[in-house]
Nucleic acid binder design. Structure first.
Lengths: 194, 194
DNA sequence: AAGCTCTGTTGATCTGTATCAAGATTTCAC
DNA sequence: GTGAAATCTTGATACAGATCAACAGAGCTT
């Protein structure tokens, strides 16, 4: 494994505070995979079998509403975790799609390997608590933004903090993430300063 | 402490799988408190100093949007946890209000006592992971319901699974939880069958 | 490079829900 | 129990943003 890739993976788990030996052992679990643009990595109804760390590329988690429109829950990109976490942990069918929006390189581990982390390495429960807490806070934040802000406010806020990686993907995915139509997104893009 | 109260608290922590002795020790941490209707238990800007288990009554977590309207994030009632969790854990000022909507009886522990649980009792990290995962799943679910369903659909869904405890509180809180005005809630209440 | 598909732009119209308003009803305090 | 305050109901109106539609570019594919 490339040194840079090791750094990216270890950095994603820095809260586990792994010892030097544990870190080397841990890195040995991760298997590389390349996914090309537009590939569905997980589909609704199938069980997620991989927990990923992203090296390169952008992926989106979404589902379809009753009219067939994509509703984007979130994105992942270099340095992020990726995968359908609840399906992965519970071995239950996924309620979401996971799609590579650009050509991507990732590393992954399996459910059994994931479960074993908590027994093998003493710092992992701590990692789990911190990551869960962080995710939870983010979800509540987003819920509030959706329910209290206007389209224009959500747009401005998003553009202000939009990471560089998301600027390369089609606008319609950003619109679907911000709960507005591509038309509304386009109008804001061309009329609002941020 | 009443036997019934012990049962309620232990049941809220059943995932920690405490031994008999640990359970008795653990119960000793909890302090009872009675709160009367309309009391603000936590305010925006103040740090939450208590993690509660509810014995009786209904409480709401909310904040005010820029027009001053309450936006309700969630409710707690008998058997639930209560408190502003992220403020409590991080010792940071709360972004939310916590209000008793009815006369309430609760038990609580302090931040230091909470932190110590994870060192004292081996099953507590497991409890933490399970509870966080459960909460996270619920938040994503709600986010989706807000962003994909119409007011009427949210109303029907809510009424179908509305716990008995929430039927005693004013409708305007339910409306604020469902992201609609009290007028819209009232109209649905009197026109829709569920 | 020509053709096709996907994506983005812009305009016209429609619609669900908020807002404003005025009464009716319930709840609460003294 | 009586008055005041809070809550709920119902109607009229307004508006943000969706929908429908038509076209203009971009980007792939062969």
């Amino acid at each position: 494994m490339e040194e840079l890739h090791k750094q990216i993976i270890l950095n994603a788990f820095k809260d586990a505070e792994l010892s030097e030996e544990h870190a080397q052992d841990f890195l040995g679990l991760w298997k590389p995979v390349s996914i090309s643009k537009h590939t569905l990595m997980t589909e609704v109804g199938k069980v997620e079998r991989r927990f990923y760390v992203v090296i390169k590329g952008v992926q989106a988690v979404y589902l379809l509403d009753r009219k067939g429109n994509k509703v984007v829950i979130g994105f992942s990109f270099d340095g992020s975790y990726s995968g359908i976490y609840d399906s992965f942990v519970d071995r239950e069918p996924s309620g979401y799609f996971l799609e590579a929006l650009t050509d991507s390189e990732l590393y992954y581990i399996t459910p059994d390997e994931y479960d074993a982390l908590f027994d093998k390495y003493p710092g992992f429960d701590r990692w789990g608590r911190i990551v869960h807490g962080f995710l939870l806070k983010g979800r509540v934040q987003r819920e509030l933004e959706i329910s209290t802000l206007t389209s224009e406010e959500r747009f401005k806020l998003f553009m202000k903090r939009c990471p560089q990686q998301l600027r390369q993907i089609p606008q319609k995915y950003l619109a679907a993430y911000l709960n507005m139509t591509p038309e509304t997104f386009s109008r804001l893009m061309n009329s609002v300063t941020w």
